[in-house]
């Protein structure tokens, strides 16, 4: 770790040399977090374990205490290995279409997330194009889009779910599963729509005025200027806002599973776990959701890097 001694020099190095320097600190931090988790699990569960030993009228030794706190059925805070074991068991232990498989629940959530994300991104793009090209839309609609960022939109989720579900299941006669799926996708759409609009309005305005003038001297039509200059320049903004959008659209899908009494999905898993006090199940579902979010964000980030590299914009 020679870079440690000279942080000023490290900044001057090319990025390819900087990367491996991060791996070690990140590993140390992650290990530290897991260690803190273990210590915390011991102290949080100690009271429960002591109660159990007191009922058996046994004076526990330290090693007994540690063993007991790390292997409880319904601990206050399950130890990391318990969560990992539960995660492993519930993803690989059951057939994929079984209700006990986390892969099944994960897919239910993921499908709604992706559907909402794709539709929301497209709508956001359309709106951004409109805002950039029509002055009165910009003046009248844009303040509302910005203001809507300050509003706790997720609060509408239960209403959209229940109302949308009733509309589609009762009035349009769709099947229960489809209606639930569509209702959740609607929330994800709604949530992922705003970051994309805001980011893309910024992105479509990002070309250098000089470049726009150049397009005008080429007597390019508005359409040509859009495709050949505005859209390519806005791509970095698009990907950044898509990363935000995909993360929040997963949150939307999970929240959307809370109020309908949905039988499937990671949110339903969380809710069921909290009803029955199955802490290990809650943590496993939480970890699965986190992995899903990380993977989704990473995929968008990867797409970002590939696209920008092929366009020669990578820095």
């Amino acid at each position: 770790m020679t870079t440690l001694t000279a942080p000023g020099l490290a900044a001057a190095r090319p990025r390819s040399l900087e990367k491996p320097g991060q791996l070690f600190p990140v590993t140390v931090v992650v290990i530290a977090i897991i260690a803190i988790w273990y210590v915390g699990a011991f102290f949080l569960n100690a009271q429960l374990a002591r109660d159990v030993f007191a009922r058996q009228k046994v004076e526990p030794s330290i090693s007994q205490m540690i063993g007991a706190t790390y292997s409880m059925d319904r601990p206050l805070l399950p130890a990391p290995h318990q969560v990992a074991a539960e995660l492993w068991k519930s993803t690989t232990g059951y057939p994929i279409n079984s209700k006990r498989s986390l892969v099944y629940h994960g897919w239910v959530t993921l499908s709604a997330t992706l559907a909402g994300f794709v539709i929301g991104t497209l709508l956001g793009l359309l709106l951004a194009v409109g805002i950039v090209h029509v002055a009165s839309l910009d003046k009248s609609l844009m303040p509302w889009v910005v203001a809507s960022q300050t509003i706790p939109i997720v609060a509408i989720a239960p209403m959209i779910v229940v109302v949308g579900y009733n509309l589609m299941n009762g009035q349009l006669g769709l099947s229960t599963d489809t209606s639930r799926f569509l209702a959740k996708a609607m929330i994800s759409t709604y949530l992922s729509f705003f970051p994309v609009t805001v980011g893309m309005v910024k992105g479509l305005r990002s070309p250098d005025p000089m470049h726009l003038d150049l397009m005008r001297t080429y007597s390019a039509t508005g359409w040509q200027a859009f495709w050949k200059l505005r859209f390519p320049t806005s791509l970095p903004y698009l990907f950044t806002s898509m990363q935000i959008a995909v993360a929040i659209s997963l949150v939307g899908a999970i929240v959307g599973e809370l109020p309908t009494g949905a039988a499937a999905g990671l949110g339903a898993r969380l809710l069921a776990g909290s009803y029955y006090g199955q802490t290990v199940q809650i943590w496993a579902a939480l970890l699965a959701a986190s992995i899903l979010a990380a993977v989704l964000v990473a995929i968008v980030g990867l797409a970002n890097r590939i696209v920008l590299k092929r366009m020669g914009m990578a820095r």
Partner: peptide, 18 residues
């Protein structure tokens, strides 16, 4: 260098699950 990537990751996670 260790906490920033972790913090960035956690910012994207569905925290409300806790």
């Amino acid at each position: 260098r260790g906490l920033l990537p972790v913090g960035n990751l956690v910012s994207a996670l569905p925290i409300i699950g806790i």
